[in-house]
Design a protein around this nucleic acid. Structure first.
Lengths: 190, 190
DNA sequence: GTCTATAATGCGATAGAC
DNA sequence: GTCTATCGCATTATAGAC
């Protein structure tokens, strides 16, 4: 297989395994086995574990940016676009119940490990934060746009954590409805 | 040193290290070194890593129950008692900024590891949930008490995760004020 | 690019002396 | 109750053949 393809393949598998099992708990052997190459060959593509983590984070950033651009074009109002964000809790419900939020769980783990890539991983949160901030500004909440963005980010983060802890699907459904309601009432409560 | 004392000492050190470094990443050597006993001696007190994790979770449950009982007696109104809960984000600010919420980060990690103690660790959340539920009932919100408890639990959980990710102390301060405000307005918005 | 073989380290866990 | 010594295993990482 050509070099770029194999590299992409490894990153995608590592991305999935880091999410499902955690970064530290996932070994090169796990990734190599899933990609169906030998451990030795793995080192041709990535020299250290830090290197593949950096590649996975970069991959997630690109994917997140693409998703945010898609939402930007899909929704024809800021409220509809923010609802796209809220709805990912439903779209990824099954995975979130088992493994939590991909961004939150990674930044938390890297913080505990004292890993230098923690700051880089947190920038995925920043992508959501700035995008949401822009939407709230378009909604007319110019002054507290960033605070609203952080509030929504925090709440959906907490929903993912608790839904996973209690293995409670209906909690996600309920909180998503509540967040949508909160959003549609925002114009009148400033 | 007498057996029960040493056992307690190990549990307290393990509790701290599991919080700071994560469960999986903390080795017996780490704990033994911090307690200043040999690795071999460690096994006199705890035979497996599962065993010490179970002891730490049990320890946290006892400590949480004691704290909730203290809050129960301290606050002379349900609103003040719920504010005790909200204020732990301030009281434990420094630790939360570095290591997140002790309950949330442990349940998340155990979920990723597929560890059988995950359900037991989640019961610490249940202690808070049921205590908060009772307070919201006393506040007069009988019908949606559990939903309000879960909403507050989720929000403070998200605040801890994001504050840690961004290393942003002022975000905790701001969100705590917002949650207190939300609480004081609850009576009028039913 | 891919493989096998292997070095070097750290881990959970055990045995046995004191 | 505490220690030293050690086993068996998984891990990251390297060397070198094909």
């Amino acid at each position: 297989m050509k070099q770029p393809e194999r590299r992409e393949q490894i990153i995608e598998v590592a991305d999935r395994l880091f999410y499902e099992q955690g970064y530290d708990h996932t070994s090169f052997a796990d990734i190599a086995k899933a990609v169906k190459i030998s451990r030795g060959n793995f080192y041709y593509h990535f020299k250290t574990k830090d290197e593949i983590l950096a590649a996975v984070i970069a991959f997630r950033k690109v994917r997140t940016k693409a998703m945010l651009e898609r939402w930007e074009q899909q929704g024809d109002s800021p409220e509809k676009r923010i609802n796209c964000f809220i709805q990912i809790l439903i779209a990824n419900q099954a995975k979130i119940l088992r493994h939590g939020c991909p961004v939150g769980t990674l930044t938390t783990e890297l913080a505990k490990l004292g890993h230098h890539s923690q700051a880089s991983a947190s920038e995925i949160f920043t992508l959501f934060r700035e995008w949401l901030c822009k939407q709230f500004e378009d909604l007319g909440r110019v002054e507290d746009a960033d605070q609203l963005a952080m509030q929504l980010l925090a709440r959906s983060q907490g929903v993912a954590t608790l839904a996973s802890a209690f293995a409670d699907q209906s909690f996600i459904d309920h909180e998503v409805r509540q967040m949508s309601l909160w959003l549609s009432n925002l114009n009148f409560t400033q």
